[in-house]
Design a protein around this nucleic acid. Structure first.
Lengths: 137, 137
DNA sequence: TGATAATAGGGTTAAAATAGTCCTGTTTAA
DNA sequence: TTAAACAGGACTATTTTAACCCTATTATCA
């Protein structure tokens, strides 16, 4: 329950990595994968998602790679999560109301939706900029 | 990402079901499974977890079944989650530090631990009693 | 006292989600 | 025109979750 996917972790690490390299510097997926010990192909998928969301920008061709698409204080952890995992659905009936057999008498759907919103607020409250100031504990 | 397991949903529904039946009334797994459209065997596992955590109490033998083990305002959503899923680990390095390849230079471990704690606080802030007053939306 | 209806729980299988790989195409610097 | 990189579709492997099966135990009741 409530565990973040590896793809999200890769994406978050990649963003902080790019951030430490500065806004303009182009970094290859290979460099990041080697540096952090991730699967290059899989990290590549995460980068593509980040690019589509505008969080990263890419340069194609030889000497190509990725860089940040925005400043570090314009990217929140929520942005990265949504880019990589899509909109979260804490509880199943949020996704498929017709599948839930006790939909009409459900006692916790409202609560779960509220909870999901609160978690989203928590994620949106942290920018990459503030994350970089964190010390590993 | 960030989706609750079916076992937890079953458990939560079962607890609210027991709560509506009153503290003393013994209810069988069969009744709950039929009523809510769940797998009887799987719900049974969830009930066993809830019992071990003291959230539910059981009566064995014919005429046996489950009832709540505490009053509804002494059971939080966090209690149910921990009973069924164990302590949550939002991020992997919280589970296996030695497996994480960038442990020493990790920029987000501290943040993730804090985040996890905040989510736990959110879950602990809702009792079954307050949940029953929620209206499905 | 034996049949039955229930919880308790170990072990196994099935299904779904996640993680990772492979391959082909496109872009572009040198 | 070659090579290094991104882009992305399709596939496979692994892991996790969900469900099922089977046996044991408990306790009611005819």
């Amino acid at each position: 329950m409530l565990q973040v996917s590896r793809k999200f972790e890769y994406g978050l690490h990649a963003v902080t990595y790019l951030a430490t390299k500065g806004l303009g510097r182009v970094v290859t997926v290979k460099e990041m994968a080697d540096e952090m010990g991730f699967s290059q192909e899989f990290l590549s998928k995460a980068m593509q998602s980040l690019k589509r969301a505008g969080i990263a920008a890419s340069v194609q061709g030889v000497k190509g790679g990725y860089m940040l698409g925005k400043s570090t204080d314009a990217i929140t952890v929520a942005d990265i999560a949504i880019a990589i995992e899509g909109e979260p659905h804490l509880v199943r009936c949020g996704v498929k109301a017709d599948r839930c057999e006790i939909f009409s008498s459900c006692h916790h759907r409202g609560y779960m939706n509220t909870l999901q919103h609160k978690i989203q607020v928590l994620l949106a409250a942290t920018t990459v900029h503030s994350l970089l100031k964190e010390v590993a504990g």
